[in-house]
């Protein structure tokens, strides 16, 4: 019997998702035995032409990581959508934009102006910028830098999500087992991770009181924590209560708060909004002066609460409006 075909692709990613797959270690051999990987630029022959030649829908599943940032990414993911039965957003960037999605707080021109002009080491008196079409001896083309970074499901229809920055090998393996079992959950499901908040699997959960009321908020560099005690009770912004479990509480085991890379639980529309509302509910603050004080204690709520999810949030990022 022919093995099911699978594809893996990266958009604006860091390569960490690819490493996460490689960290399956000896299990990667099982994957190779079970499926026929027809496309994986980082690891096997690049055969985009071959993908184009495949009949539509002939790839059983495509796992795509990274947000869509360049015109080239858009082209390839649309092709993979056409050729695949199932498309899976693999990792935080593909699912919701991830950390590179914070670039949506700035527009394209601001980014290019800084990177190629204002950055202190740049020596560019002629104001040269990389161009989509540039003629030297021949015409040299670069893919265009899109106005903003897009989560995968804004560009194409997505069937499932595997969360994490990156997803751990355990989560990846569980998700692959589900995909290969043929016993598929409803469309839009999150695969491989937990259905409950991170706190439930956190080793410090038994030190978390039923009711928390915070007098103050501290940033991680301002406090030496007790690694045996719930970080929330030590006034750190630990996002465990609003974040999907499944990672095994890796950061917390290293005495650092959860920053939310597994995203929200089912039914939550806006991760950052949910996180803000959770913290608003446990802060022992009542007056306007208190609000001023908290903003001073936490000057970058965007980077804290929307670190991995800004492009997929209700806020989306900086959007220019023009007056009529």
């Amino acid at each position: 019997m022919e093995k099911p075909k699978m594809a893996l692709y990266w958009c604006a990613s860091c390569g960490g998702c690819e490493e996460a797959v490689v960290d399956l270690a000896e299990k990667i051999l099982d994957v190779i035995n079970l499926v026929d990987i027809v496309f994986w630029p980082v690891a096997v022959d690049f055969k985009i032409d071959d993908v184009e030649k495949l009949p539509d829908g002939s790839i059983v599943a495509s796992l795509i990581n990274g947000g869509v940032r360049l015109s080239e990414h858009e082209h390839v993911v649309k092709l993979l959508r056409r050729k695949s039965k199932i498309v899976v957003a693999y990792g935080a960037c593909s699912s919701w934009g991830g950390i590179p999605g914070l670039a949506n707080l700035y527009d394209k021109e601001e980014i290019l102006k800084y990177v190629y002009g204002d950055a202190p080491s740049v020596d560019n008196p002629g104001g040269v910028r990389p161009r989509e079409k540039h003629v030297e001896e021949v015409e040299l083309e670069l893919p265009s830098f899109l106005p903003r970074l897009l989560p995968l499901d804004v560009v194409i229809d997505v069937d499932y999500y595997i969360p994490g920055c990156p997803p751990t090998p355990e989560v990846t393996w569980k998700a692959l087992e589900i995909l290969l079992s043929g016993n598929l959950p409803p469309k839009g499901s999150v695969l491989g991770a937990s259905d409950r908040a991170l706190c439930y699997e956190c080793p410090l959960n038994n030190t978390k009181p039923d009711k928390i009321l915070l007098k103050d908020i501290k940033r991680p560099h301002q406090v030496i924590v007790d690694p045996e005690k719930c970080l929330l009770t030590q006034e750190l912004i630990c996002l465990g209560p609003v974040t999907r479990g499944g990672c095994g509480a890796l950061c917390i085991k290293a005495a650092m708060p959860c920053t939310g890379c597994f995203g929200s639980l089912d039914e939550v529309i806006d991760y950052g909004g949910k996180a803000v509302s959770y913290f608003a509910s446990i802060l022992d603050y009542y007056t306007e002066e208190d609000v001023e004080r908290i903003l001073d204690r936490l000057p970058d709520p965007m980077g804290v609460f929307y670190r991995y999810t800004l492009p997929a949030s209700r806020l989306r990022g900086k959007i220019k409006t023009t007056m009529r």
């Binding site: 860091c14 080239e72 830098f145 670190r307």
Partner: peptide, 30 residues
């Protein structure tokens, strides 16, 4: 030709400095 740009230096602006050791590794996951 290297067709890759994500703008880390720009979107670092506005972030808490102590978050940078977690933000900048996303430049390269290897």
């Amino acid at each position: 030709q290297v067709p890759e740009l994500r703008g880390f230096e720009k979107f670092a602006v506005g972030r808490h400095a102590e978050d940078m050791p977690q933000i900048t590794p996303r430049i390269c996951g290897v």
